[in-house]
Amino acid sequence: MKSRNNVYLLLLSLFSLTACTDVVDVDLEKSEPLLAVDGQITDQPGPYTVRLSTTASYFSNTTTPAVTNATVVIRDSEGVSETLKQTTPGVYVTSQLRGKVGHKYTLTVKADGQEYTAETEIRRVFPLDSIAAEFRKESLGQEEGYYLKIYGQEIAGKGDSYRWKVYRNDSLLSKPADLIFFDDLYIDGNYLNGIALGNGPFKKGDKIRVENLSLTDDAYQYIVEIFNNTAATGGLFSNPPANVRTNIRNVAPNGKKAVGWFNGSAVRRVEKTI
């Protein structure tokens, strides 16, 4: 369930998600390696990248192996397709394909005698107007430094979902607490007049970039599950993390499963040096 009071409590309420769960016994010592897919296409100029690897046992200290010599193809809803080129082990990139808002895309991966497919689309996204940096002195539970606020006009028409990525000096802030995502259920068509980001504090001279990415409904739920599995702190005796969803499926009904996600997003960004 989700509970949100108003736009200013947006981020807090988006993270107040709970669910009834069953305890599942998982053999962490031994697990069959599965194909792991990490791919994205946007409406920005390419190249776009699909990374392929295999999963490893939970207690393994080795790097997850890259999947080489695979055939990776992306096809759009207008019939345009491209076979990606492997540039480094497990990394496949496009050379000509260009993502467009409103188009749907299909990923096909042939590897290790198996064929997998995934579908996504690039939905609309609203532009960000500006970033404001507010200096705050040290107080109880808050470090001294600059904290960010974001401004932008959300597009009218319910059903949109977004993720915000925050970069400091060109490095993505990637801790669980930095994961910002929301839908437009209570903000549809409104102007976001100084939404406070939970990241920070920042310093004078920091170069800040915030990217607004559109999400499909399934991708939004995928991020919800990622957040719940990485940021939730249920205590010593809480249930173990559950497997998150994937849109990668084997074309054979009884074929080996895969994990990961193939995502499509429109991207709008704004920058500021504090």
Results as ranks from 00 to 15, higher is better:
3 S>D: 07
10 L>M: 14
11 L>Y: 09
12 L>W: 09
13 S>A: 12
14 L>A: 02
14 L>S: 10
18 T>L: 09
23 V>P: 01
24 V>G: 06
25 D>H: 13
28 L>G: 14
28 L>V: 15
30 K>F: 15
34 L>N: 09
34 L>I: 09
35 L>D: 06
36 A>V: 15
42 T>Y: 07
44 Q>R: 15
44 Q>N: 14
46 G>H: 08
47 P>Y: 09
49 T>M: 15
53 S>G: 10
53 S>E: 07
60 S>K: 07
62 T>D: 12
63 T>F: 05
65 P>N: 05
70 A>F: 11
76 D>Y: 00
81 S>Y: 06
84 L>A: 06
86 Q>H: 04
90 G>F: 01
96 Q>N: 12
97 L>W: 01
99 G>A: 05
100 K>G: 03
100 K>P: 01
101 V>F: 00
116 Y>R: 04
118 A>K: 06
121 E>T: 12
122 I>M: 01
122 I>R: 01
127 P>G: 13
131 I>H: 03
135 F>S: 00
141 G>N: 11
145 G>A: 09
149 K>R: 11
162 Y>Q: 11
168 R>A: 11
171 S>I: 10
174 S>D: 15
178 D>W: 02
180 I>F: 04
188 D>S: 11
188 D>I: 02
197 L>A: 06
201 P>E: 06
205 G>P: 10
205 G>E: 13
207 K>T: 14
209 R>Y: 00
216 T>Y: 04
218 D>K: 13
225 E>S: 15
226 I>D: 13
229 N>K: 04
234 G>S: 07
235 G>P: 13
236 L>F: 12
240 P>H: 02
240 P>Y: 03
246 T>S: 15
249 R>I: 07
254 N>H: 10
254 N>C: 00
255 G>L: 09
260 G>C: 10
261 W>E: 14
265 S>Q: 07
273 T>F: 05
